[in-house]
Every structure is written in structure tokens, then in C-alpha cells.
Design a protein around this nucleic acid. Sequence first.
DNA 1: ACACAATGTTAGATATACATAACAGGTGCA
DNA 2: TGCACCTGTTATGTATATCTAACATTGTGT
Lengths: 68, 68
Amino acid sequence: MKTRIRELRAKMGITQEELAQQVGVRRETIVFLEKGKYNPSLKLAYKVARTLGSTIEEVFIFEEEDLA
Amino acid sequence: MKTRIRELRAKMGITQEELAQQVGVRRETIVFLEKGKYNPSLKLAYKVARTLGSTIEEVFIFEEEDLA
DNA sequence: ACACAATGTTAGATATACATAACAGGTGCA
DNA sequence: TGCACCTGTTATGTATATCTAACATTGTGT
């Protein structure tokens, strides 16, 4: 799963640490999300999207394999 | 978290069992999702939404507390 | 080159989504 | 009455998201 977290975060001019605080998770969690290293819970995905001023389906990019 | 799974599933005329099979999870998982008893992974939410011919943000209804 | 901020990585602990199996209640239909 | 189908629940096990802390790397400005 790819994401636009890094891109949107840069656009807002905030660091991983700041995003993490606003979302209420640890910075490492943001690192892993940005790198697509895991499949977040729906609520976390929602909080990240809202904090970045966007929607879930705009922030997280699903691929074919995600429907398999 | 509330959902429109039951409503959309009824509209498609399929059972929990059939939805579960199409999504690739157990029927109990669908029961729990319909009742808002847990917070699914993003990929599962995506599969459910697509199988119901809808989007994540239309199927899963977020509340204020989900941003807390 | 130095200092400092931002990012990346790793290892171990905890919480919980999801699987699995088994059983119970309801509804409709022969 | 009976049976078959759909739905709900409960208990236990496994996989993994997330936390925590510590350290490594990269970038940026002076």
C-alpha cells in the first residue's frame, strides 16, 4: 500500500514528530505508515487523513493486490 | 464506529456468509463489523466497501470520538 | 567541520484484529 | 411439527499493529 502522507505532510510544513503528536501516535508509527510498512487500523487512517486535511481514499493508495 | 454494512448488504440481497466469502474473511468478522465491535484494518475496510459497491467513507461512519 | 534537527532502524512488550470451532435463537416454509 | 437457513455469541489461539526506548543515518545551516 502506497500513501501520500509524506507529500501532504511536506505541503503542510510539519515534521513526522508533529504529525504523530497531532494524530496521537508515536513518530515511528508515522515512519512505517509513510513507507507502507503496515496496514493501519481504519480509525488511525481516518485521523491521519483528517489531520492532513484530506480523505482516506486520497491519502492511502490501494493496489490490485489489496483486493486479492 | 457505525457502519452501513447491513443496509448495503441487504440492498445487494446477500447474506453475511456470502459477503464474508467475497471479502475473504469469516462470517463472525462480518457480524462484528456490522455491530461496530471492532476497528478493522484499512485493507479490510477497503475490501468490504468495494464488495458493497461503495467507498470506505460511505460505508464506515466516523464520529467525534474517532478523532480524540 | 561542527552542531542540531529530521528521519530511519531495530528489538522487545502489549493490545487487539481476525481465525477457528462450537453452540443458541429466530424465521420461514414443507 | 419439523427442518434448513440466517444471525448472534462465546472461548481460545495466532498474527500483527502499535508502543517504548535506544541508537544510527542523513540533511541543513553556520
